[in-house]
């Protein structure tokens, strides 16, 4: 991308300040961080328990082995951590900005408003979960394959990034609808509930749900595809689809925000 260096540096410096202040705020609530950590451990233990309940009945979910299923769970854990670290703390505020009118301040800053709204704060309590997700993916893949060749590793990293972008775009578009509907928080709860389906490989679902999770809600691209990449089972076509989907989702989220702002800036009094 041909981008002048100075603005990029300014955005980076801004980001440092954003997250520096965010960390300072959160230090006031250490207890919250501890609870977050315990909840994370509990959730992971519960997910493992559930997988084991299938396993002990001799069920291979969608034909995936125990270790392969753990790779999917690792990808889910990573994205769940990302949600707690960046998506939830930032995007849930858009509603407040609209309700309290402080979106005006954001719009009057000489900085991209989507950048501000998406990355304004960071919640470090979710970082261990992201790390744990990656470790689980690598550990389980290694046990499944015996070794981790660099090519699938790279492919998995890229596709996990694509998954993060898709997830972000979904959340952002939903959160941006708060320009029209004040209470969109419940809608994001629906999204969050539906995305828990990503804990398991998409082939473990009946045909109807599999279609739904691939075409309507891209759950398959969030967790199953990166896991397949790491396990070296991915077809190039799927990888390409995932990348195109990520680019498309990002473009759509920007266009949608511009569209939503047109309503905000012409309708508010």
């Amino acid at each position: 991308m041909a981008m002048p260096v100075a603005p990029v540096l300014r955005y980076l410096r801004t980001l440092r300040r954003f997250w520096g202040t965010a960390l300072a705020t959160q230090l006031e609530y250490q207890l919250n961080a501890l609870i977050e950590l315990l909840a994370m451990a509990g959730n992971l233990a519960g997910s493992l328990l559930l997988l084991w309940l299938f396993h002990r009945q001799g069920v291979a979910l969608g034909g995936w082995s125990w270790n392969a299923v753990l790779v999917v769970l690792g990808a889910y854990t990573f994205l769940d951590g990302l949600t707690s670290t960046l998506l939830r703390p930032n995007l849930s505020r858009i509603v407040n900005h609209v309700q309290e009118g402080t979106l005006d301040f954001v719009l009057l800053k000489p900085i991209d408003s989507q950048f501000w709204l998406s990355l304004r704060t960071i919640s470090p309590a979710g970082l261990p979960e992201m790390g744990l997700g990656v470790v689980l993916m690598l550990w389980a893949a290694r046990r499944e394959l015996g070794a981790l060749p660099p090519a699938p590793l790279l492919a998995a990293a890229v596709l996990l990034l694509a998954a993060a972008v898709i997830l972000y775009a979904l959340w952002f578009v939903l959160a941006a609808t708060s320009i029209w509907f004040v209470k969109t928080w419940n809608a994001t709860e629906v999204l969050r509930a539906a995305l828990t389906a990503g804990r398991y490989p998409v082939s473990a679902y009946p045909a109807g749900l599999r279609l739904l999770f691939t075409l309507v809600l891209p759950v398959a691209f969030l967790t199953t595809v990166p896991a397949e990449a790491l396990l070296g089972r991915l077809t190039p076509l799927t990888a390409l689809t995932s990348l195109l989907l990520a680019c498309g989702a990002l473009v759509i989220s920007r266009a949608f925000w511009a569209f939503a702002l047109r309503f905000y800036t012409s309708a508010s009094s």
Partner: peptide
């Protein structure tokens, strides 16, 4: 969805 697919699959058996 998960349990019914597992039940129908017969992989348990």
């Amino acid at each position: 969805g998960l349990w019914s697919a597992a039940a129908a699959d017969g992989s348990a058996a």
